[in-house]
Structures are given as C-alpha cells and as structure tokens.
C-alpha cells in the first residue's frame, strides 16, 4: 500500500515538473507579447509575477510538501508572510515621502 502511494507521488512530481517547464516557457514568451496598459509595463509585470507566484506555489505546495504538513509549520509560514508583507510596505511609505525623492 505504502509503495503504491509513493509511486503515485512519483508520477505527480514528474507532472509538476512538466507544468513548471511549461510555465517557464510561457513566462518567457510573454516577454514578446505586448501587455502594456496605456504605455506602462504594468500589465507585463502583472502577468510575469502571476506566473512566478503560481510556479512558486507549485514548488512550495508539492516539492516542499506543504500539501501535507503540520500546523506548527503553517503557523511559522503565516507569521513570516505577515512580516514579509509589512516589509514590502517600505516602498509604499517611501512613495508617500514628500521630500527626499531623488
């Protein structure tokens, strides 16, 4: 039974691998497509980061087997992500700074 599960897992890992390769190709191709919104490259950045987040999710969820982890690990990741988001808040504060833009 156990080995049956593992062979299923193995197949899943290779599928994820194929999906990751596919996403890589997709994100590179996206560079050559014009997603520009009103002259800014925001559209392209959005597409690129969405694909990256999806790939990151695939790796974390499957390879780092977060699909089947203990609550303690989820708690640590949750706390870290909250502080990570606070860290990404720095450019927002900086944007609001009235002087000191160079």
């Amino acid at each position: 039974m156990v080995s049956d599960n593992i062979s299923k897992q193995v197949i899943k890992y290779w599928k994820i691998f194929a999906l990751l390769l596919f996403c890589t190709v997709l994100t590179v191709l996206a560079v050559y497509v014009d997603f520009d919104v009103e002259g800014s490259i925001a559209g392209g950045i959005f597409i690129g980061l969405t694909i990256a987040v999806f790939k990151g999710y695939l790796v974390a969820y499957n390879f780092m087997h977060l699909n089947d982890e203990k609550p303690m690990v989820y708690w640590i990741i949750l706390v870290t992500l909250v502080f990570f988001l606070i860290l990404l808040f720095i450019p927002v504060i900086w944007e609001s700074t009235l002087v000191g833009k160079y």
Partner: peptide, 11 residues
C-alpha cells in the same frame, strides 16, 4: 530563483 528570473531578466 523562480522570482529572481522574471524580476531581473524579463520585466
């Protein structure tokens, strides 16, 4: 690297 790749090379 999955994040560095688009951030530094593509976008």
């Amino acid at each position: 690297w999955i994040f560095l790749f688009p951030v530094l090379y593509l976008l």
